[in-house]
Every structure is written in C-alpha cells, then in structure tokens.
C-alpha cells in the first residue's frame, strides 16, 4: 500500500489507482496473474480480454513477453478504433473460473479480513485452503506471499513457478507479445 502510494504520487497521474485487497476485479474479469490488462469500449463492452501485459521489458528474459506489442495494439485501438478480435474471439480467450477457484477467492477474502482483525492463525488457515483449491492461480499463490511474509521474488516463488510450469503453465490464453 505504501509502495503504491509512493509510486502513484511521484508524478501527477491522469488516471485513478485503486486498491483491491479483496481481488474483486480479478473475480469479475478473470484475471489470474499480474500485470494484466483488458480493454473496455465506450459502450462498456469488453473488446480484449485480460492477458499478461507488462508495462516495460524489465522482466522480459523471465516472462518472454515483448511489451511493445501490446502498446502498439493499444495505440491503434485508442487512436483509430482498430479492434484486435471479434466478440467470439474475446470469449475464447477469457479464463473462466472453476468452482475451486471461486471457493479459493472466498477463502482468501476471509484470510484478509481475519488478518485485519489480528487473527494470524485464522488467516494462515484460510490462505492454505485457498492455495490448495487454486494451486496454479498466481493471484492466489503469489498474491498470498507478501501476506505470509514470503518474498514474491524468492525461492518459494521459483518453486511455485516450477510447479506451475510442470502443470502446463495454465493461465492467460492470449499471449500478447509472447516470444516463446
């Protein structure tokens, strides 16, 4: 939260930065990892589904994503109304939740509230349950790491990445700018 504030107040921003401790947006839009972006048009229709979209190439060697690809598509949409796909394609690239993932999101919300109430044991119990239910969802597994005091770039994270890769790298289907 502090880090977000520092970043967001460094320069005046033309857009709002919102805090979503309960992962409401992830639930509504099928977001399973961050950074992710999706496009919503003037009529409030989703015209490009959630996908991994790094803002820069800082992690390119790790993610294998060329960030410029999304930036260029975005410019063309904003400036020239050029759409990248039709409605059926948007649907085909959406990541729909399983019952387990929806239950996991609820356990995670309970963990967040219990933590606020000072019940660390209760929070850990519900984080464990969330992770058992959604072992390959980055917003759950990696998202819980800072709550557990675990480094989201450390050894535990690399272990998770290994598990996730071994499971066939489930997640976003679109692969904007992906090189490998």
């Amino acid at each position: 939260m502090q880090a977000v504030k520092e970043w967001a107040t460094k320069e005046p921003l033309s857009y709002p930065v919102l805090i979503d401790t309960m992962h409401i947006v992830a639930d509504l839009y099928g977001i399973v990892n961050v950074p992710a972006a999706l496009w919503i048009d003037e009529n409030d229709k989703i015209v490009r589904p959630a996908d991994s979209t790094p803002a820069s190439d800082m992690w390119r060697s790790f993610s294998g994503v060329d960030s410029a690809v999304h930036h260029e598509l975005l410019r063309r949409w904003v400036r020239h109304d050029e759409l990248t796909m039709d409605a059926d394609e948007v649907r085909s690239f959406q990541v729909l939740p399983t019952s387990e993932v929806q239950q996991a999101r609820l356990h995670r919300r309970i963990a967040v509230v219990l933590r606020e109430q000072g019940d660390e044991d209760g929070a850990l119990e519900h984080m464990d349950k969330a992770e058992q239910l959604a072992p390959h969802d980055w917003t759950i597994r990696r998202g819980n790491m800072p709550l557990r005091g675990v480094d989201p770039f450390g050894e535990k994270f690399m272990e998770f990445v290994g598990e996730w890769s071994a499971a066939g790298s489930p997640g976003f289907k679109l692969g904007t700018g992906r090189e490998k």
Binding site: A3, W7, D20, P35, A36, A37, W39, I40
Partner: peptide, 14 residues
C-alpha cells in the same frame, strides 16, 4: 468513465 475507452490494468507493488 462511461462513454470513454478504458484500459483496465491490474498490478501489484509487491
């Protein structure tokens, strides 16, 4: 932000 194009970005500060 009705009637405007919107880019919805989800990210974490870690």
């Amino acid at each position: 932000f009705a009637k405007r194009k919107k880019l919805l970005l989800a990210w974490s500060s870690w």
